[in-house]
Design a binder for these strands. Structure first.
Lengths: 113, 113
DNA sequence: TGAATATATGAACAACTGTTCATATGTTTA
DNA sequence: TAAACATATGAACAGTTGTTCATATATTCA
């Protein structure tokens, strides 16, 4: 690693002081990591239209029940979605408005090139 | 995979019709995947304060030059950052305003619990 | 209660990812 | 031009991740 030029030293200190804590940055990366998978993005995009049961998601995504269920549990553990039971079926939906907002911002970024 | 209840069939079709294309969803997942690493989030958070050269980033992050450089190339390939040369040094900065916005939304989500 | 339905979960495995180490490339200075 | 400096990059390796397969749990209905 190279030595630091004196004129850079205070920029480094100032930047360090202004940055969010390591804990916040770590958690933020974890959140984005959960968004960073095609299957999970497809699930979130579907749920942004409204709540949906597991079998509907399987049909919509054309994926096995097991694969969908595993990803739902990842999304739920990260508090990106929540669920409710109605008889035999379990309906999933986005956990809060932030989730839809993050998804939208990402999609917009891609669509606008 | 279970059979689809008739009353669910049109919800599935409608949701499918309203969802972004597979290509958009795939690219969106790829973007979030790049955000989904602690080292890269730290780099982006640092650059959101202003441009910075590689050796400053190494010092700030307390990481090897090689590790930082590899991640910078990932960020650049995904067009999240850009760079300019000034003499021996190369300064990196966020590619556009969207990047800072996505980062901020993610951090806010974490900070607000 | 037993069968059918809907969903969850553990194990296993291939594919992917991030760091390190060694080295290459490009720029400045002596 | 040679040495020093700043950054990039290929190979390798350990750790992580997403799917499949098999099976478990929970609810309803006959």
């Amino acid at each position: 690693m190279a030595d630091i030029h004196p004129e850079h030293a205070h920029i480094i200190e100032q930047t360090k002081a202004n940055m969010p804590s390591e804990e916040i940055l770590e958690k933020t990366a974890e959140v984005f990591k959960v968004f960073g998978d095609k299957t999970r993005i497809r699930i979130l995009a579907a749920l942004s239209e409204g709540e949906m049961c597991v079998c509907c998601l399987c049909d919509l995504l054309e994926m096995s029940q097991s694969a969908v269920s595993h990803q739902l549990s990842v999304l739920k553990a990260a508090r990106l979605i929540k669920n409710r039971r109605e008889g035999k079926q379990i309906y999933y939906s986005l956990d809060d408005a932030h989730i839809g907002a993050i998804l939208c911002t990402g999609i917009s970024h891609v669509e606008e090139g």
